[in-house]
Each structure stands twice: as structure tokens, then as C-alpha cells.
Nucleic acid binder design. Sequence first.
DNA 1: TTTT
DNA 2: TTTT
Lengths: 165, 165, 165, 165
Amino acid sequence: MMNRVILVGRLTKDPELRFTPNGVAVATFTLAVNRSFTNQQGEREADFINCVVWRRPAENVANFLKKGSLAGVDGRVQTRSYDGQDGKRVYVTEVLAESVQFLEPKGQGQTSDRGDNNYSRQNDQGSPFGNQNQNQRQNQGYTKVDEDPFAGGGQIDISDDDLPF
Amino acid sequence: MMNRVILVGRLTKDPELRFTPNGVAVATFTLAVNRSFTNQQGEREADFINCVVWRRPAENVANFLKKGSLAGVDGRVQTRSYDGQDGKRVYVTEVLAESVQFLEPKGQGQTSDRGDNNYSRQNDQGSPFGNQNQNQRQNQGYTKVDEDPFAGGGQIDISDDDLPF
Amino acid sequence: MMNRVILVGRLTKDPELRFTPNGVAVATFTLAVNRSFTNQQGEREADFINCVVWRRPAENVANFLKKGSLAGVDGRVQTRSYDGQDGKRVYVTEVLAESVQFLEPKGQGQTSDRGDNNYSRQNDQGSPFGNQNQNQRQNQGYTKVDEDPFAGGGQIDISDDDLPF
Amino acid sequence: MMNRVILVGRLTKDPELRFTPNGVAVATFTLAVNRSFTNQQGEREADFINCVVWRRPAENVANFLKKGSLAGVDGRVQTRSYDGQDGKRVYVTEVLAESVQFLEPKGQGQTSDRGDNNYSRQNDQGSPFGNQNQNQRQNQGYTKVDEDPFAGGGQIDISDDDLPF
DNA sequence: TTTT
DNA sequence: TTTT
């Protein structure tokens, strides 16, 4: 079994940083990756790929990337599911970034690599995108770190069972 | 911009082969890729990744792979969206397989590689999964190739605008 | 069998463009890819990876990349061997670039993708690095395209048998 | 900077397991990866790619893989150089395997993944292939683990400076 | 015999 | 509901 994804693209908006109840950082962002070919209408389309990154690299992403930043992701494809508000199961496919590379001219040389720390690969999992997948409108309960990461209730909807502790 | 995915896993069920109104073959299948680590409960989970493949390799997939087959995929992450039956937009992330490798002991050496043909990369796109992502139960309108690939109305819900003609 | 390489790094010097006797363009360059970790001495090392690219993308590489350019490569690992001048066999491992991405701020959006053309994957092979691997000092017989690509004798030391004709 | 390689192929011979003076295991093997296309003569060629793997996965490789085994490698391209016996510098390009997947029917589910341990990515480096690259004939000074891994002098020609201690 |  |  093998599972490897490499992406280079631009953030569609600022990354979102959240924390689990245990204080583990997790950042989410969407990469727009322009296709190398044009469609029937001669337009160059893009894929908009949701990415998740945990711990130290998550903090680096939040600190160094913003809307429009060029970034590279090395990670795996991850699937999960949850019960939607209308009662039916929703399936989500996203990219778990194991390392994130900052490719902006000024940010060059910056790396956000989980290989720099001591966390085992087992740690990188979970579902920091809200239970709405690409629909993150009702995330108002979550706290972005640059606002108040430890604010009461500023938590992510991941049970501790899914977390690396 | 770069976008590359490599997967090795097993088909969760037989692949589905369909044809566009213009007779272009497209196969869909889901790969179960076991994770290399265990979760909090010590269980080894898997990711279930939807894959799409077009034209000649699609036919090879339909002919040589079945539920449980070990296969490798080299392709890209692709996103698309459609209007769900409840009126809200549904976002889908899947893998566009550019080549599929048959890794079964007997099938070794078999390849389904889009590089063997003359189609440009522009051709490989579209959305052969029904409009339900991992929920393909109501695909009754589509024709599986091993039933009657050219049956009247046996078509895929892709507008011709999305197709390589 | 699967074989996929993705690199992002900087050209160590200007790419070299040559032509086969049949006029097929081939460019070679070396990517310096900084490692994401430091060595025992706390220094960040790099890998210097030889890359080869054929035809249209080769010309794009020669036209748009130069020493220091940030570039992404999507390709395969390729090995070949030849008889060295001292009579013993020399083994070479390099990267056959199937597409090259220009990641410089000004060059953004520029792509050199073999998927844009009609060449089959079979075409991308051969050994445009001189028979000296990383030692290209005696390339004086080869003609760079911006000098005179079709000058008499301005050829690459590849037999026609290795070429896509 | 990004550097990722994924290979699936067969071992050309039994892997070789050695130990550094500090007792760190390192295995080397060559993967034959058949190309997906044929050459001018209609023959299907292969690339013969040298791979290196460290520590626990190295021991798993030595224990579970042998000549002819189907294996998958996820790693990076690594270059190094050394002074050849004739005084000139020799440059080597090989694959540093970060995880190795056993794809044999019986070995399925077996994984040799460095993500299962606590070693940081910094640890995975060095040059366990003899100083002859693809020419490993005079390795008689190294000790294969299944002979006597801790025999006096059974060491690898890596200075401690290159090792993770 | 190397890039920023 | 998207990036340059």
C-alpha cells in the first residue's frame, strides 16, 4: 500500500489555524493548482484541493502563508466521513500534508517539515476541516490562533480518540 | 503548479465502465489504501480513494481488475462540483488516473498506461462518478460495459462541453 | 512497475540544449535541491540531480530557465550505462523530466509540459548528458541552440537507434 | 525545495545489510523497474535503481525481501560523491528509501516504514553502497547481517560524521 | 564540483 | 465557491 501526493499551488485564502482540546495545532488551507492544459473552451482551469497539516508545520503555515502564497505540499490522500446535518453520511477526500514548502520569493528557504520534529507519522491524522468539508461557514465556534487560540470553546470538533495522545 | 498522486491499494469492488455519448470509455473504481500506522485503538485504517480513468486504460482496468485486485495508480488530484438533488452545491475530490498498474501476481507486467496512446493530457478530465461521489447507488441509468456498453441511453452524465471533442 | 519523481529546486547553471542528428531537441540541467534537514555539523546540504528533457519542453527550458531559476520537475528515474574512456562500464542515474514547471515569480504560469504535445511517452528517452555524466567539460562539439542548432557536426552522441524515429 | 520518489519494481538480487561502527543498520538493494513503453526495437527495457534504507526498515528489508521480490519504495533522490581509486571524483545518484512496501502476495500487508519509529528525518542519510555505485563486487570487507553482523571490522565505509550520532 |  |  502506497499513498503519496505532491502539490504546488496557491492558497485560495488565508490558512485557518485551530487547536484540539489538548492544544494540538492543526491548520487547514485550500490550494488552487492550475492545470497544465486547457479545457474545450480554451480556458485553463484549476483544482481546489483541501489540505490539512498538524503541529509545528501547522503553526508555520499559519505564520508564513496567506491568500495567494505559492506553496508545495508533500503528503497523502486521506478520506473520512461524518453524518451530515440532513442525516446522510458525507464523504470527504483531502490531503494530509506531511510537509509544506514555502515557495514565495521572500519566503524561500522557509520550510514547514514534519521531518524536523520528533512526531511519529502516526500522529498526523484527524479531520480539522469542520464537519462540513468545503463548507466552513459555521466555523464561528473555532478560534483562529491569531485571534485567541486558547479562548473558551475555541476548539476543534475532533474527539480525543482521534488525536495523538 | 504541480499535481501528482501515486497510490497502491486494492479495489473495493469491480470497476465500473461507462461511455460518453461520443463513445469514450471511462472507468471508475475505489482503491482501499491501508495506512502504514495504527490509530489510537491500535487498528490499521484505510483510505478509500475514488479514481477515474479514461479511454484505453479504462478498458484495460475493466478487463483486468476486479474487487480485491492490487493496483497502482499514477495520476493527479482533481476537483469538481455539481448541483446536488437538494439544490446545494456538492464538491468532489477524486484521483484522475493517468496510468494504472496491475500488481496481481498473475497480472504482473500488465499495464494500463495512457502514455501508450496518442491522446494529449488535455483529454483526461470529466466526472464519470455519478453525482453522488462515494454514493453510486443510483447509477442505474448508466450502462456497464459488461452488460451492454452501447445500449440506448447508456450514457454518462457529462455534458459534451467537458469532453475531449 | 511504477516510477515517479517530483523535484523542486534551483538550476546550478544554465541549461544546455542540444539536438540529435534528426533535429530533436534535448536539454540537460542540474537541479540543486536543498535538504529539509541539517547534517551532523548543522549545515543544510543539497542534492544535485541531473535532469534530461526532450523536444518542446526542452526548448522551453532553454528559453525560460537559467542558473539559479527555481523549477519543478515531474518525471521518472532513468538509468543507463556506457563504456568509459578507461574501458570500464559507467553507470548513470538521472531524472527524465516529463514536465518542467517554472516557479520564478516572473515566470509563473509558464509551463513546459510534454502533455501539451502529441508525443507518446515512448519518445522520452535517451542520454543527452555526454558520456561523462556529471562531467560535461568536453562538450565543445555540441551546439547550443542559441548559437547554431543545425551547424555541421553540432550533434549529440546518441545513436539514432535510441531516438524516437 | 521538494524531493520525492516513488518506485515499484523487483529486487535484482538479495538486499545487503550492513552496520555502521555504531551499530546502525543500513540495507542496500537495486530495484528493476520495467518501463511502460518499448524502445525502437520493440523491447521493454528496465531502469535499475539503487536504493538505500536505514535502521528498522533496513532490517525488515533484509528479512522479508530477496531477489525477485516485488517492492515499493517511497523516498528521495540523494546524491553524493567520493574519491575513486584512480584519484578522480565519482558522483553517485541513488534513492534514499524512507519506507519500503512489500508487495509480494504472501508478504502483503507487510510494511517497512520509517514513520513507525521515532527517528527524525535527519537520520536518514549516508552512503551504504560501496564506493563503486552499481559495481558492488568488492564488498568483501562489509559484513552481511545474516553472516555475522557484529563481526570485528564488519563495517561500512561511512565516517561517523555522516551518521546520526 | 554545483543553486538561493 | 476559491489562487496568480
